[in-house]
Computed example of a mutant assay.
Amino acid sequence: MFILLTVAIAPGLALFSFFYLRNQMATEPRRTLFHTFIYGAILTFPILFLQYVFQEEQIFSNPILENVVFTGVVEEFFKWLILMIAIYHHVEFDDPYDGVLYGVAISLGFATVENILYLLSYGVNTAFLRALMPVSSHALFGVVMGYYLGKSKFSKKEQVNEYIVVALCAPIILHNAYNLIFFLQDHWSYLMIPFMLFLWWFGLRKVKQAHNHLIQHLYAQKKI
């Protein structure tokens, strides 16, 4: 059991460390990041319950709506909602790169608990594949969400609502594309590799842009 938990948790911690250490200009309070991670972890259970209820009640007659669209929308919406309620107006959300870290934290909180539950059901043989795809994809969806929330908070007033909407819609689109590829079953592997390469490229591009925005923000405040 200890080995399984270690294997399930390790990818999330490694990915979070990767994005945390890329921020060399400022150090975000670890307690707030930990709380955000816990929010994401707790969020796993109501989301899984909601998905279970909808599946059992057969709300959707179209399997694509149920397995592709509904799953992506629900997961990203609730992560976005918690960030808006608990983090967006927090005093420690004080620079553009913070959005990336909080987005990654809540997403990896969710992905880590989901990974634990999955490995408990199917064993550690699936751990490597899940680290490469579901866990890392959740982290990158969080990067995109957090990047646009950071843009929203530190942009002109007329752009605030626009970026808040993009912070919700962009991860949903990416998540639905990811789910759709898996839905193709026999052909998913041919599309998943280029999609994951694109997702990493896109996510790291947003990380770089967020870092540049941070430098501009600190320069404007005459902190560098």
Rank of each mutant, 00 (worst) to 15 (best):
L132N: 02
L132I: 14
M133C: 08
M133S: 09
P134V: 09
P134F: 07
V135M: 12
V135P: 02
S136L: 14
S136Y: 09
S137H: 01
S137F: 09
S137P: 02
H138I: 11
A139Q: 08
A139Y: 03
A139F: 11
A139R: 05
L140R: 12
F141M: 03
F141K: 00
F141I: 02
G142A: 09
G142D: 11
V143K: 01
V144G: 04
M145R: 12
M145Q: 14
G146F: 02
Y147G: 01
Y147M: 01
Y147R: 06
Y148F: 15
Y148V: 07
Y148N: 01
L149Q: 08
L149Y: 02
K151S: 11
K151F: 05
K151R: 15
S152M: 07
S152I: 02
K153I: 07
K153V: 10
K153Q: 11
K153A: 04
F154E: 10
F154L: 08
F154A: 08
S155L: 05
S155F: 05
S155D: 10
S155Q: 04
K156C: 00
K156R: 14
K156N: 14
K156D: 15
Q159K: 15
Q159V: 00
V160D: 12
N161E: 13
N161S: 13
N161V: 07
E162N: 10
E162D: 01
E162S: 12
E162L: 14
Y163L: 06
Y163P: 03
I164G: 00
V165P: 00
V166L: 13
V166D: 03
A167P: 08
A167W: 08
L168I: 06
C169S: 11
A170G: 11
I172N: 01
I172Y: 03
I172W: 09
I173N: 08
I173P: 08
I173T: 12
L174M: 11
H175G: 07
H175R: 12
H175S: 09
A177E: 05
